[in-house]
């Protein structure tokens, strides 16, 4: 016998919170209950789209309470953390003393560093030769950051450009133009110097690239986006980033592969001290420097103009 037809429910009106949970569970089990009237949090406006950090369970507590609860918890957390950190430092080995582990790992780096990697600057040797996998991951962190910034801020299509954003153009300022005219050549020269001498003196790909990137940003601020756009347009940005990162990835994969399988790698170390030495470190520094320069400039462009 067909069950009596249930009166069709119009738009289920907002569920009034039934008093006892037991009665609603019983009704739910009898299966004739419209599931919407379960003790679901009160009507949609307040807790329904509750995306905030208040979970529905807390939504019944007056608004000010979570704020106080949060601050109290945060205060306890940070005090405990500070206390433990001070205690840790108190237990750490003495500052500035020769630790006993110096004679295993670091001894090898310093004594044979220059001999194997050819780099006078041992830190560059460690970064690009001994622990090269970290630095490969490093430039991909930067690549990932620039992809995220491009995804977030790029708004070349008309509709996606936010309407109330006013672009302030300070590029016609005479003082700025004279100073940048005097400074930029020095900055580029210094950046290239730091880049090329990565394996001889402190510096290297990341710091050299950042200096060159800063030079590009200065040109863009002083002479407006279109002048610097001619130096690094979107095409140049894409080509440089892709070629440099692919070269880095492939070059290092070659070294890892030959090293792991014991094959002889054709990359010689050259005589330490002059520019063209230290195997792959110089070309890698140049590649990383270009990637970092384009990234710094690209990120600035996204914040400044929201498009290339």
């Amino acid at each position: 016998m067909k069950k009596a037809k249930k009166a069709p429910k119009t738009q289920p009106e907002t569920a009034k919170v039934s008093g006892t949970a037991a009665s609603s569970i019983k009704k739910w089990l009898d299966f004739d209950l419209d599931i919407d009237s379960l003790p679901v949090p009160p009507p949609r406006e307040s807790a329904e789209d509750d995306g905030g950090d208040e979970t529905p369970l807390l939504s019944r507590i007056p608004k000010s309470a979570p704020r106080f609860v949060y601050t109290a918890l945060a205060a306890i957390c940070s005090i405990v953390l500070t206390a433990t950190l001070i205690l840790t430092v108190e237990g750490m080995p003495r500052y500035g003393e020769d630790q006993d582990y110096m004679d295993t790992v670091t001894y090898e780096y310093i004594t044979h560093g220059m001999e194997y990697t050819g780099a006078v600057n041992i830190v560059a040797g460690i970064i690009l030769e001994y622990r090269a996998f970290d630095t490969l991951g490093e430039s991909f962190v930067l690549f990932c950051a620039v992809t995220c910034v491009l995804v977030l801020l790029r708004a070349d299509s008309a509709d996606s450009m936010p309407e109330d954003v006013v672009f302030r153009d300070l590029s016609h300022d005479a003082i700025l133009r004279r100073t940048v005219l005097a400074i930029v050549p020095l900055v580029f020269m210094f950046g290239v110097y730091v880049l090329l001498n990565g394996h001889l003196s402190p510096g290297g790909g990341f710091s050299g690239g950042a200096v060159i990137g800063a030079g590009l940003v200065m040109v863009s601020v002083a002479y407006g986006g279109d002048v610097s756009g001619r130096i690094v347009s979107e095409r140049v940005f894409k080509i440089v980033t892709t070629c440099a990162l692919s070269f880095y990835c492939l070059g290092k994969s070659y070294t890892f592969f030959t090293g792991a399988n014991g094959l002889h790698s054709i990359v010689g170390n050259g005589t330490p001290g002059n520019i063209l030495s230290a195997g792959l470190i110089l070309p890698l520094n140049v590649a990383v420097g270009m990637v970092v320069a384009c990234t710094v400039y690209g990120i600035y462009r996204m914040f400044d103009k929201r498009s290339f």
């Binding site: 490969l136 991909f140 690549f143 992809t147 894409k238 980033t241 892709t242 990162l245 692919s246 990835c249 492939l250 994969s253 890892f256 592969f257 792991a260 399988n261 014991g262």
Partner: peptide, 25 residues
């Protein structure tokens, strides 16, 4: 050393390289 021992490194390198390539495709 068997070739198969390179596979862990290959899987990371394949992903990194294709990440770079996909950004221009």
């Amino acid at each position: 050393m068997e070739f198969i021992r390179n596979f862990p490194f290959f899987s990371v390198a394949v992903f990194l390289f294709s990440a770079v390539i996909c950004s221009v495709l």
